[in-house]
Write a protein that binds this DNA or RNA. Sequence first.
DNA 1: AGCACGCCGACT
DNA 2: GTCGGCGTGCTC
Length: 805
Amino acid sequence: MIVQVVVDVPTGGTDRLFDYKVPTHLQGMVESGMRVIVPFGPRKVQGFVIHTSNESDLAKLKEIDEVLDVTPVLTNELLELGDWLTTNALCFKITAYQSMLPAALKAKYKKEVMLTNHEYLQELPIEVREWFKHRKVVDWEELITSGDKQLLVLVKKGVTQGLLEVIHKVNDKVTQKTIRVVEPVSVNSLTNQLHQLDNRALKQKRVIEYFLDNPEPISVSALMEQTDTTRSTIKSLVDKLVLTEKEVEVMRDPYVNRRFKKTEPLPLTAHQQDVITPIFHSLIEHQHQTFLIHGVTGSGKTEVYLQSIAKALEIGKEAIVLVPEISLTPQMVQRFKERFGSLVAVLHSGLSTGEKYDEWRKIHHGRVKVVVGARSAIFAPFRNIGIIIIDEEHEATYKQEENPRYHARDVAIQRASYYQCPVILGSATPSLETYARAKKGVYQLLEMLTRVNQVTLPAVEIIDMREELKTGNRSMFSKALHEKLSDRLARGEQSVLFLNRRGYSTFVMCRDCGYVAQCPHCDISLTYHQTSRSLKCHYCGHQERMPQTCSSCNSEHIRFFGSGTQKVEEEVAKVFPGARVIRMDVDTTRKKGAHERLLTQFAEGKADILLGTQMIAKGLDFPNITLVGVLAADSMLHLPDFRASERTFQLLTQVSGRAGRHQLPGEVVIQTYTPEHYSIDLVKNHDFHAFFEKEMGVRRLQSYPPYYYITVIQVSHPEITKVIDVTEKITAYVRRSLSDQSVVLGPVASSIPRIKDRYRYQCMIKYKNEPRLVEILKEIIENYKKETNQGTLQVSIDMNPYVLM
DNA sequence: AGCACGCCGACT
DNA sequence: GTCGGCGTGCTC
């Protein structure tokens, strides 16, 4: 038996299949989709079995060393999907497969040096002998960290002489958590013991009575709690051979301490019914179709998701639900857990490696039928997918910004077409690409343009901050926002203040010479952080003390400009003394669970104002919020990215949607310096359609998606001349190779021309149809392979960039 | 990635 | 005449 294996060596040269023989003792244990350990050159590496067969073109084959799995970790469908990823995201096969699995399954490599025979010790040079005096095996890592270059040379010599041997080890990162459980040996022994017990042994009696009622195994700690006993009581029963102890593998459950009360499907409104009917049809008829639910905030999309999933489960299938970043929307998880209970697995970045692995295993073993998760949950190892749902479809987090640079939406559609099942994309503000496809009929458009229960969309007021300045208002709150905030405070209603920035202020500038504090490693200005009284770089983490004087002209008039969440918090305290504020940004939610805790406090009415950045823009649904204030609507409008207008409109619409979702009507105040810009003005009437038409016109003029596809090749290197040289060559090559239908721009400096002391240049390709593009791009990667391997040069290619930076 | 092979300059 | 630099190429 022969197996074809992809090895864990992510380079161009090894990005293919290698044949191995299966030794007799492993025959019948290997299937495609399993992980194996194979000898590769002088060492051992992990690999994935892609095919099995009976012949090979090569005469002499090595044998596989070990089989790591009992059942395949990759189904045939996922193996195929990996192939698709390599061409569509331009990555190595091994990278594709690894990104489908939890990190716990990735191999850990270790190199050791062993003294082959104790008698050889005397023959080793004195420096080496020291290391092997008291042990046979030394970690390679230890030798390296000793910093002794001569030592390494001597060790290598010892290896060639046969005195020492190098051992390559491959370890699984898998960590299975176990707990001690006890159970009765038999019911008889329980009753026997009960009669023999000393009258004073009240605690033992209680334990035995517990087991007579519940004979199944229980963890020692739970038993102690249940029977109010201590470890010693249980120990003595174990010693008397009444109970037995054993180690049981347990699943870590991140939501273990949470109670979810079961909810029943809600009656659907007429709109919801109209939307769900075609979805049910597609489900029942096993038709692959992509639906776009364009539903305004509060239109009841989640209930449609829940009932569609229920339908999929009813016909014996599984469901995947993607949400932007799950730890950010505990409310969403709760709704799924409440409806489907223990059938739900949750996958997101807030979980530990072990927790992620356990959630993954629940899916792999078929113990759950629904997975709710962030981007990578799209690779959930289900075998019979009935429906895939992507909520907030327009969110940029669905695009992975490192290899493999896939978009979860594309993967979803690929998987759904394999299983012939529906995909549902949902959003109040669909991405232009998606909405354009829906209008063309590639996706089926389903609209829900009113809120449930006749709740009206909030009234939006746009405030021109230039006018405020003219009337002498120099505070960060406009007159209108100030009045409305005091009004809510007086009425005991809650408000949300949204600011698209963190930290205390955006940048530090000298009022005399105009000098702006810059990061020494990146071409970006530093941000002032009040708590540490320091300047931080948000790209490389560089930190320095806030200067007292300008480092350029020594003036003392150095001040911060703009306003971050910290500064707003101070300002609110000054203007509205007594108002209770909860601030949510990256700094206050860094700790595990902090996000949820703050939201719970707000939900319980422990604060009047929720002040935050992006993370409060979506998913919040609290009945008492009646006012939303956006402090600086244009902060992201002027970014050098063709999606800047789209993002601004989406964000403003999403934030506005937080207000007045229940009985109390909502109001929104948007402060801006460019009220006339369409992406701000059109938020006023919640007019997505007008925005779509307007923005499509802009995209057409500038040849951007959805009219053209784009691919960005980015080059970085510590020396600017090198970067320009390489980017020029690449650009010229691309220009020469593509048809004249396509537009090749560059080379130009990236919008942040330097990060972490590396200069960055790029070339942008706009095209409609270039069948040879992937091939050309692969040639480029291959051509610079040597230099990129050495680590100095980086060439990264993104075939559908979401954030141009 | 790791490692061997192989071809040029500076040493005993 | 040999040791060691790292460019090149291979790993079933």
